[in-house]
Simulated assay, not measured.
Amino acid sequence: MGKVIGFELNSQHPEKEAEFYHNVFGWEVAEPHWGFRDVTALEGGINGGISEGPSDYPHGTRILIEVSSIDQTIEKAKDSGAMVLREKMEFDDFYLAYLVDPAGLGIGLKENK
């Protein structure tokens, strides 16, 4: 595991972002679900999403990395200087956590159930 499986674009104006990426690149942007708009990139690109960024990550791009164990990955990341923004969260089919690497770049971790 450890492969990049998606991206998130965080913005304080996600509706404007959705319109921009649809108009310019032809991305299919779904209606919001949990405040997250699924994005389907065309021609075999990596899919992702657009959401309203929280106060601690109001705007920017974050890659999403699939891992076999969020708990183990968080511990390794913290030992290597990462900061946890959102502890492990449970959704219907997966778990999700958000970190900031030692250089300040945001990453998401996803573990399928």
Rank of each mutant, 00 (worst) to 15 (best):
E17F: 11
E19V: 12
F20M: 14
Y21F: 00
H22A: 09
V24G: 12
F25H: 08
F25P: 07
E28T: 14
V29T: 02
E31H: 03
H33C: 15
W34E: 14
G35H: 11
R37E: 11
R37K: 15
V39L: 01
T40L: 11
A41P: 11
G45R: 10
N47M: 07
G49T: 01
G49S: 04
S51W: 06
S51Q: 13
S55T: 07
D56K: 07
Y57S: 10
I63D: 02
L64G: 06
I65C: 05
E66W: 00
V67G: 02
S69D: 00
D71Q: 09
Q72D: 11
I74F: 07
I74P: 11
E75Q: 14
A77N: 05
K78H: 05
S80Y: 13
G81T: 00
A82V: 11
A82W: 03
M83K: 09
R86Q: 01
E87C: 01
M89I: 00
M89R: 14
E90F: 06
D93T: 09
F94D: 01
F94P: 01
L96M: 14
L96H: 03
A97P: 12
L99M: 00
V100F: 08
A103H: 07
A103C: 11
A103M: 10
G104N: 13
I107A: 03
G108D: 01
